[in-house]
Amino acid sequence: MIDEKAGKVLEIIKEFANIGAGSAATALSSLLDVELMNDVTTCNLLPLAKVPEWLGGAEQIVAGTYTYLCGDLKSGILVVLPQESALALLNHLTKENIDLAHLTPIQTSALKEVGNICLCWYLIAVSKMIDVDMIPAPPDATVDLLGAVMDLPLASLGEKVDTAIAVHTSFKGIDRQFDGYFLMLPEESTLKLILDKMGEPG
């Protein structure tokens, strides 16, 4: 089922990924008080099992922010920042030396907020395009092995999901660059709804 739709969905996702990345860059620019552009945005539809590989291996350390949509659209959403990007962002925001193994409550909160802002701006872009309200639950963040960070998102969708919409964006400023990965794990009904709304009945 999902395979047949994959091509169409990917086209649509590409459109809103670019818009979403643009909005996220603007929002992060004001949060960080630096000029940021979204440099490169790539999109993929991946089987869940391939996601850790796509992100560079299950054993690398990443910062993950997870939430889920409650409403008509059912989807898990995970924002992943590679270790260096998380360090650079937190250092810039808090002006403190960051030890990812022992984040202070303020630093954890900052990390959640960065993830939250990224994912909300993506959602706003999608929501405007398909004219459906998206209501994310309050997110939670953790810094750990990528495989471990992905366990709960995978478990909460169980057998209902086997495809992830994976978007990679490089944000570029004058003296810094960092990467953000945005993963959407939609239930089949959500994929169908997106297609219907975009005039491509699945």
């Binding site: 850790p52 299950a58 054993e59 495989g147 471990a148 366990d151």
Partner: peptide, 25 residues
């Protein structure tokens, strides 16, 4: 050999198996 989610493997000495990044799994 790396064993991912929903995989199973059997080995004999001296082979090794590894599970990377176990969270709630």
């Amino acid at each position: 050999r790396s064993i991912g989610i929903a995989q199973l493997a059997i080995v004999h000495a001296p082979d090794q198996l590894v599970c990377l990044g176990l969270g709630s799994c």
